[in-house]
Amino acid sequence: MGSDIVLTVPAQSAYVTLARAATAAACAQADFPLDRLDDIRLAVDEACALVIADAPDGADLQVVLTVEGNHITIVVQGPSRRELPVATNTFAWTVLTALVDEVSTDVSDGSLSIRMQASGVESVAL
């Protein structure tokens, strides 16, 4: 608990499935209800697609998952030809904001990062 899961894979869509699997495992740790887990996995899908879209050939995609209690933070990042972060008036952004509690994006030193946060259910039964 509390330590990071760091996954580095080639920035190609074929490897996104590994990020999805790791996300599901991390969300299970954080006790996310199944529908929220699916949302977050979908958000990771979308974030990976965004990074991969402008990644130079041979680049790696990194996914860092941090679980603290019932809270998860996910950072998806990779080298990118983009000069600007993901615009907030795009459909991709609409999708991301609907799927997780908080999302932010940044471009620095030729790397695009998308940071997402979400909380699972309290351990007290409803």
Binding site: A28, P33, L34, D35, R36
Partner: peptide, 11 residues
């Protein structure tokens, strides 16, 4: 029973 979707643990 829960009034929400179950977690992996609960399943």
């Amino acid at each position: 029973t829960l009034g929400r979707a179950p977690t992996v643990r609960e399943l």
